[in-house]
Amino acid sequence: MYRITEKRSLNPTVTLMEIEAPYVAASARPGQFVILRVDDEGERIPLTVAGYDREKGTVRIIFQIVGATTSALNRKNVGDTLSDFAGPLGKPTEVEGLRKVCVVGGGVGCAIALPIAEELHRLGCEVHTVIGFRSKDLLILEKEFAAVSDRLAVMTDDGSAGRQGVVTVPLGEWLAAGENYDEIITIGPLIMMKFVVAAAKPFGVPTVVSMNPIMIDGTGMCGGCRLTVGGETKFACVDGPDFDGYLIDFDEAMSRSTMYRDFEAVRREEECNLFRGNK
């Protein structure tokens, strides 16, 4: 069992938790993920590691409450336990040798982008960051990004915080102004990452995307997380989750991500009713 040692609401739909998992905390690196189950009947869901404290033996996760499982997770409190927490899985993000990077995060993807930005900053890399959200209410981690970024742009769809517009606006401006990045690292909704890649392409800047497809085991057994990368089948859990954004078939990945949409909708509804019933 894995105890929750801290819980904090970052915004109405995004929660941060610290989980006691000494093995995972000892070996996790930015860009890797864990698979967890909330309880004995629960499904296995992948969540990217948002931080770790090797001394305390805790791992930080930040998740958006989108479905039945994340709702159930969000009902757990400090002192409660999760039945399973396995990892770290996937390959860490490659940060060695980079001198100037633009990190582009969208929504809850910013939670995963932060440890990468922090690691780059720690290694002495110049970090430019764009973070985007739907509105001010959903804005998270702005201070944390500011602390490690040499340049930071905050974007919202409705202009309620930062500038109004999508993340590719400042990215495009910076690229056009001659910022010569070694790499762009982007994490967020598939559609956003697709457009970040499209914005980077004319400038030929290598762009790494972090993929988060549906998976079961996360260890290279089920094949559910397969993606087409440069015409080849790759498995996000063992070959990724980071891939060369120029080679990803985003349309296919977006289609596959909706495989269980109907099931999710029903389960979410049931979960909400159950919760109401308990009250």
Partner: peptide, 25 residues
């Protein structure tokens, strides 16, 4: 380990499973 696929068109469609995934679910 990793399930094999045939490498034919359409294997990424929704509703295509490896036996590993289908049976594991």
């Amino acid at each position: 380990g990793l399930p094999r696929f045939m490498g034919i068109p359409g294997e990424a469609l929704k509703g295509v499973y490896s036996a590993n995934e289908y049976l594991t679910r």
